[in-house]
Structure formats: C-alpha cells, structure tokens
C-alpha cells in the first residue's frame, strides 16, 4: 500500500498535513501525536518581525464551526529558527513554514531567509488571511497583486512553494491560475471564510476584531466545491482543507481533486485527529482495495 504523495515537488510520506495556525509549532501537540507519522507539519504563520495579534475575545464558537481573529500573532522568523525549528528537525516529517508579510518586499525577504535555513522542506504563503482590514489582505483577492507577490517570492526560493488561497473571492479558479502562473508549485485551499457573530444582549460583535475567519465542519461543503472547481479547470497540485474532522472528510477532498489534505480546527477538538485520520485512510484503502492513495485524487471528475 502506497500512502506517499508528491505535491508539486514536495514529497510526503502520507497526504495528511496540519493546517497552519492550528498546530502551533508542533511541540504543543507532541505529547498527543507522534509527529513522525504526519505527512507534514505546517507551522503557525510567521512574519519577519514578531506580531502581537488582536485583542481578545479572539475566538467564538458558532454552529458546527468557530470564528477566529487571532491577528497572526507569532514569534517572528528568527525566534522560530532559533527556538522552534530545532525541535521539529528531530522528527522524520516534512516541515512547511507558513509565512506572510506586510509588503511585497517583506514577503520576498521572509522567503529568502527561510530558504537559507536547513530543515525546512517547503513554504506556504499566506496571501489570504481575512483578519486584517487593510493592507496585505488584498494580496489574495486582487489578481495583479497576487501575481506580483508570488513572483517576488518565487525569485527568492528554490523550495516547493505553496500559495494558500482565500475563499473570499468571486472566482477561486482564477486566483489559483494566477498563483500557478506566477510560479507556485501547488495551491492550498481554503483559508477561513470571513464571518461575524453578534451578542444579542449587548448588541456588540462577539469578536473584538468584529469579523473573523470561519472554520470547522460548517465550511466543508464550500471547501470541497472550491477544490473541485480548481481541479476541474487547472489540474494542478492542490492541498485541500476546510472542516476536515475525520478520514471520510479527508478522502472527500482527495476525490474532489486534492493531492494532500490539511487538518485544522479538528486539532482543537481532538488533539489526536491527524493520526486518527491517517489510520482511517489506511482502513479505507484496505476496504476499497486501493493500492496507491494518489490514484483517488480527482476521481470524482471521471466519466
């Protein structure tokens, strides 16, 4: 049985990764999960300088999901390299660094710094976080800006480059095409969907940031549809994510067109979700007589 997948040049021992921002820097989960078993660990999004993040409340639960407005709090690239990466390097799993910047130059500089560091197997560009009202959030919604920022990063890195797409656009296939033409090796989708919740007693938003990103099972049908559309129009390597709670959900994304999947909010609900999903995929392959997990990618499009 072959669980290995190749996503745009990124070789993974199995198709199950962690979604950025839901797995810390890996060590938070090490007492629950054997990190060696994961296809990849995608770390919490990093910027050149540390970021403080948004004031609380930052999270609120909604029907079958949650809104978050963490505000990209992170320790910065240098501290990550010095304090967190050495721990991750002890494991036999791919380390993918999610990163973002406030300008095209910052993106490029971050990519350059990360690419010069041993022990990082791939980069994932966040061009889609919906938590900021202004500035860089347009990177992921304006095709021209996307072209520029992805192109600038591409020049600075030889590592497999994944661009994480925002669902808060009219045509996600267009954004995927733009990212690929600018040099991305793969796309990951979807990031959270901008949402809002209001406390009817105080008549105030439940999040201090007013709006936040919706994740969890509530968004899964939207995410599956978007993976389906991007695969149908482009046939490019896709990492599918959005509300994956169990192996069945993960397999749904693969069939829709994903070559790998990322588990996000499920880690908060059950810290062992990732390895349970890997076990479930193996189980499915045995029952269905599937020899190679890659063979089911995009099979919904057949016939």
């Amino acid at each position: 049985m072959n669980l290995e997948v190749n996503v745009g040049g990124l070789k993974l021992k199995n198709p199950v990764m962690t979604a950025s921002g839901t797995f810390g820097y890996g060590e938070e989960y090490a007492e629950f999960v054997d990190l060696n078993r994961l296809g990849a660990v995608v770390v919490k999004g990093l910027s050149l300088k540390p970021k403080e993040g948004n004031p609380p409340p930052r999270v609120v639960e909604t029907a079958s999901g949650m809104l978050n407005a963490i505000g990209l709090q992170n320790i910065g690239i240098e501290r990550f390299i010095g304090e967190k990466l050495p721990f991750l390097r002890r494991f036999d799993t791919a380390v993918i660094v999610n990163f973002f910047g406030d300008s095209v130059d910052e993106y490029a500089e971050a990519a350059e710094r990360l690419s010069a560091t041993e022990g990082i197997h791939g980069l994932e560009m966040n061009i889609s976080c919906p938590n900021k009202q202004a500035g860089w959030c347009i990177f992921g919604t304006d095709p021209k800006v996307t072209t520029r920022v992805v192109g600038a990063v591409r020049k600075k890195t030889a590592l497999p480059l994944i661009v994480k797409l925002s669902p808060n656009v009219t045509d996600i296939s267009l954004m995927a095409r733009v990212a690929m033409e600018a040099g991305a090796d793969a796309v990951s989708l979807i990031n959270t969907i901008t949402g809002m919740a209001i406390d009817i007693k105080t008549r105030r938003p439940r999040l201090a940031n007013i709006t936040g990103g919706l994740s969890g099972p509530a968004v899964k049908p939207i995410a599956v549809r978007m993976v389906y559309e991007v695969y149908r129009s482009l046939k490019i390597p896709i990492i599918g994510m959005g509300g994956i709670m169990n192996a069945g959900d993960a397999i749904e994304f693969l069939i829709a067109g994903a070559s790998a999947v990322a588990v996000g909010t499920a880690n908060f609900v059950n810290p062992r979700a990732t390895t349970e999903i890997i076990d479930g995929i193996i189980d499915y392959m045995e029952k269905e007589g599937i020899g190679d997990i890659g063979s089911i990618t995009g099979t919904v499009h057949a016939g």
Binding site: T22, F23, G24, Y29, G53, P56, R58, N267, F268, P271
Partner: peptide
C-alpha cells in the same frame, strides 16, 4: 474564550505588562 486548551490556537489570550 478557549478553543484548544493546550496552547496552540492562541485564542484565549489576556493582556499582560509583557504582552499577550
């Protein structure tokens, strides 16, 4: 408000004199 309880989500922060 807490999502994970184990330090990963950064949802449950409070403001302190040395940051969140």
């Amino acid at each position: 408000h807490m999502a994970c309880g184990i330090g990963a989500c950064l949802g449950c922060v409070v403001k302190t004199k040395t940051g969140y």
